[in-house]
Design a protein around this nucleic acid. Structure first.
Length: 374
DNA sequence: AAATCTCTCAACCGCCGCTGT
DNA sequence: GACAGCGGCGGTTGAGAGATT
């Protein structure tokens, strides 16, 4: 049975026909909206009230702006999401003409992937732990050179031993597929692939990875994410920082705040300019993963740990393995030439690069009112 | 050209909070 | 306080379109 012919309790479901749309528009123009429960009957529609409300709110409302999201809208969504979390209706209230459903869809199908590709966790808006940690650790340990960038949470440690490295890599690799946004975002793939992963691989979460990484780190004073956000809101450049501060104190997303209680993640919010992180992700980590030296070391570690199977597991190229996660649909971004677009790409065609340095800044210019509205 | 895969987004579902009785 | 009705919200689904093989 097709969706459009689905009926339940005599009520039609599925896509709306132009005739139904017209009936709804005519009725609302004449009587206004509200009383959604009785509206369909009065309007001569065989639909439930919820369906009518949704159709009106998401599609028929005259003030809806249709078409592609502008770069400014995308930036606004990202900034608002970083403060509000998945409060789509509140985010939508700040974007005239856009509906919560539209923003939610756009987030899930576009922005989430873009952020992930950039090495930014779309949930926490923090730089992705896996890429960042590997970049630092590999830079300092494998190549035994002074870091090109300095992360406080890794300071004081320059060398890790092979078992630690292997532990880290094993943990990371077992996270790879599970953290792959394609697995998460594409529910078809998710159901198929993730179930297999759950069966075949040890359970691994970002927290477990963080725990593993914690063993490499000396105790660092952990400043909570919330405190950092509030600190950012005190930036004198932010006109409404007091208002923003109160908003952050009240409205910071539950997901983000949950991290503050774990006290295991390195605090990455010290960075006021994302370029350091972008350099780390696009340059150092990728150079490490791609290098023959790294592959050689990694494979010898596997052999030393007897992790090769009896049939003689062929050496594999870790960079290609990592690319499936680090840049799920565009592996080419791993190579050094294209990675520079992370830093400099600001053209229309490369809107997914978010080259501007203020992406993680919370200077939403107009502030928020008590309802979370601009 | 056909088959298969991937992506998008309109629509649905279940839950929650508010309000009135 | 308990309950029912309602509107709103966020997560999820799946048809259809487009891309790829």
């Amino acid at each position: 049975m097709t969706k459009s012919s689905t009926e339940k309790n005599g009520l039609k479901k599925g896509p709306w026909t132009p005739e139904e749309d017209q009936k709804l528009i005519d009725y609302i123009q004449k009587h206004g909206h509200g009383k959604w429960r009785t509206l369909p009957k009065n309007a001569g529609l065989r639909r439930c009230g919820k369906s009518c409300r949704l159709r009106w709110a998401n599609y028929l409302r005259p003030d809806i702006k249709r078409g592609r999201f502008s770069f400014e809208e995308e930036e606004a969504i990202i900034q608002l999401h970083s403060v509000l979390g998945n409060k789509w209706s509140t985010i939508a209230a700040n974007l005239p003409g856009r509906t919560d459903n539209e923003i939610k869809n756009y987030w899930n199908t576009h922005i989430k992937k873009k952020l992930f590709k950039m090495g930014i966790d779309p949930v926490t808006h923090a730089p992705r732990l896996d890429v960042l940690q590997l970049a630092s650790i590999l830079n300092t340990s494998l190549f035994n050179s002074s870091p090109q960038f300095n992360y406080p949470f890794l300071s004081g440690r320059s060398v890790i031993n092979s078992s630690q490295l292997l532990s880290l890599l094993s943990t990371l690799l077992s996270c790879q597929s599970r953290n792959n946004p394609d697995n998460v975002l594409n529910h078809n793939n998710f159901h198929q692939n993730d179930n297999q992963l759950l069966q075949n691989q040890p359970q691994c979460t970002q927290m477990q990875l963080a725990d593993t990484l914690q063993t490499f780190q000396p105790n660092q004073p952990q400043v909570s994410l919330q405190e950092n956000l509030i600190a950012k809101s005190n930036n004198p450049l932010n006109v409404d920082h007091q208002l923003m501060k109160s908003k952050l104190e009240n409205q910071i997303s539950p997901v983000a705040t949950s991290f503050t209680h774990q006290n295991t993640l390195p605090n990455l919010w010290h960075y006021d300019n994302i370029s350091d992180l972008q350099i780390a992700q696009s340059s150092s980590a990728m150079q490490c993963f791609s290098s023959p030296k790294f592959n050689s070391i990694f494979n010898s570690l596997l052999e030393n740990q007897n992790l090769c199977n009896n049939e003689g597991m062929p050496n594999f190229n870790l960079s290609s393995l990592l690319s499936s996660t680090t840049s799920s649909s565009s592996p080419s971004t791993l190579n050094s030439s294209s990675s520079t677009t992370f830093v400099n790409g600001t053209t229309e065609d490369e809107r997914d690069t978010y080259g501007s340095s203020n992406m993680l800044m919370y200077n939403i210019s107009n502030g928020l009112n008590d309802s979370g509205l601009l």
